[in-house]
Amino acid sequence: MPAVSETGTTPGDGSVAVLARSLLDTASIPRASGQRLRVAPAHALTGEQLAAVQELTDRVASALGLPGVDVVPEPGPLTASEVAVSRRLALRTPGAVADGAPERAAERALAAFPGPAVVLPARDGTPLRCWSAGPEDAPAVAVVSACGMPVGLAAKWMAALSPEYRVVTWESRGLFAGDDGKGLGPLPDHTLDAQSEDVLAVLDGFGIARAHVLGLCGGAVLALAAAARSDRITSMSLWHGDWELGDDTPKTTHQRDIESLLTRVARGRPQAAAMHRLMSRPSTLEGLRPDIAHYLIHPYATAELLHRYGLLNGVIMATDCRRLLTAPQPALVVTSGRDTTAHPAGSTYVARHLPRAGLRTLPEGDHLTAFDAGAGLVALARGFLRTVTVPHRRGA
């Protein structure tokens, strides 16, 4: 191919830079499955064009250290996770590619925010894929994302808060494979105690003594559980929490359906495999936001992931949180009347019963917009953080 400069960075524009970022953004699924995914291009390609796309994709994936993908001529028959990845990659005919461009694009993608994972041990030795951003001497914020979600779903919160705070986050134990190509490691413990201790283990690994915890969805349950067990958690903000509160609050249809699904797949791998065959249909993607579907589908991508997700998130959704509502730290509880995923009445109850909590019920936004870290949400988070964190850095 003739040597030309790299141009274009619009998603799906066929540039090498965008391809590298997209492959890295969807890497959790092929890493965990241990095999090449089939992906369809964004539009019909001739045989020659298909070969060129495959060659370039293979080169970029190899430079990223990722399993390659098999580019197929038509969208079907693909699984739901393959369709989600296909949509994110939006492969199209590449233009002329400069010598060394795939390798340079891969290097830049790997270095881009939030950067490569740091693998830290949980207290039972389980490896945790972790990230840190922001000044090391600033007050710390631990972002506790929803169970089973890749780091990309929390990256906007990291980017928004890291100019003022040291922000750390991690991916759920046992649901994400490392970069060594060995697939998923063991899952020795899936209890709520183990998962909430991971909050403290991440702080240990980064040398952080005390932190605010920002919990999203089921991550709000883990944040609260960590605060109830340790005064190293100095304050918390709990966003659109997915709470189990017995008969004291209602649940949405979504909460009831997911809890039933998780109970079923947690019973054993045969049950998970049977359910996975049903959930692999592309119709599973209906109702999922296309821009983040490749994150949301991760814990459903393989039968083994689905079984482990049933164990981990099943415990989060089934634990009666009323016993945790003695946590004395100052707390901000946020929900929206438009949240049809996690019933806002749960957050209202939690705010009413925590000793030092305030409630904000927003007029706009649904469950998933909490992950978008929009300007209004970030301003709310920063305003609360400034009231509960040390206003100066250590040593200043």
Rank of each mutant, 00 (worst) to 15 (best):
M1A: 12
P2L: 13
A3H: 15
V4N: 06
T10E: 13
L19N: 02
S22I: 03
T26V: 13
R31I: 10
S33W: 11
R36E: 15
R38M: 01
A40V: 03
P41M: 02
P41G: 00
T46S: 15
L50S: 06
A51H: 08
A52V: 05
Q54V: 03
Q54W: 00
L56N: 01
T57Y: 07
D70A: 13
V71M: 09
P73C: 03
T79K: 03
A80T: 10
A80K: 11
A84E: 14
L89N: 09
R92M: 05
G95D: 09
D99G: 08
G100V: 12
E103A: 14
R108T: 06
A111R: 14
F113G: 11
P121C: 05
D124P: 03
G125W: 10
L128M: 09
S132R: 15
A133D: 11
P135Y: 04
D137M: 03
A138Y: 07
C147H: 08
M149H: 14
G152H: 08
L153E: 11
A154L: 08
P163V: 01
Y165K: 02
L175F: 03
F176H: 12
F176Q: 04
F176T: 04
H190T: 02
T191Q: 06
A194T: 05
Q195W: 00
Q195S: 07
D198Q: 05
V199N: 01
G215W: 12
G219F: 01
A223Q: 05
A223C: 05
A226W: 03
A226R: 06
R232G: 10
I233V: 15
T234V: 13
E244D: 07
G246Y: 03
D248S: 14
T249A: 15
T249M: 08
H254R: 11
Q255P: 00
S260D: 03
S260R: 15
A272E: 05
H276A: 12
H276Y: 01
H276T: 07
M279K: 06
R281T: 12
R281V: 05
R281D: 15
T284Y: 14
E286F: 11
I297M: 13
Y300I: 05
A303H: 11
E304R: 11
L306M: 13
Y309I: 06
N313A: 15
M317A: 12
R322N: 02
R323C: 08
T326Y: 11
A327N: 12
P330I: 06
A331I: 07
L332A: 09
T335Q: 04
R338G: 09
D339H: 01
P344D: 05
Y349T: 01
A351S: 08
H353W: 11
H353N: 10
L354M: 05
R356T: 02
R356Q: 13
A357S: 01
G358V: 14
L359F: 02
L359K: 05
T361C: 14
T361Y: 00
T361H: 01
D366F: 06
D366Q: 13
H367D: 04
T369W: 04
F371Q: 01
A373L: 08
G374I: 02
G374H: 13
A375F: 00
G376D: 14
A379L: 09
A381K: 00
L385W: 00
V388G: 06
P391A: 07
A396R: 09
A396D: 15
A396K: 07
A396S: 12
A396P: 02
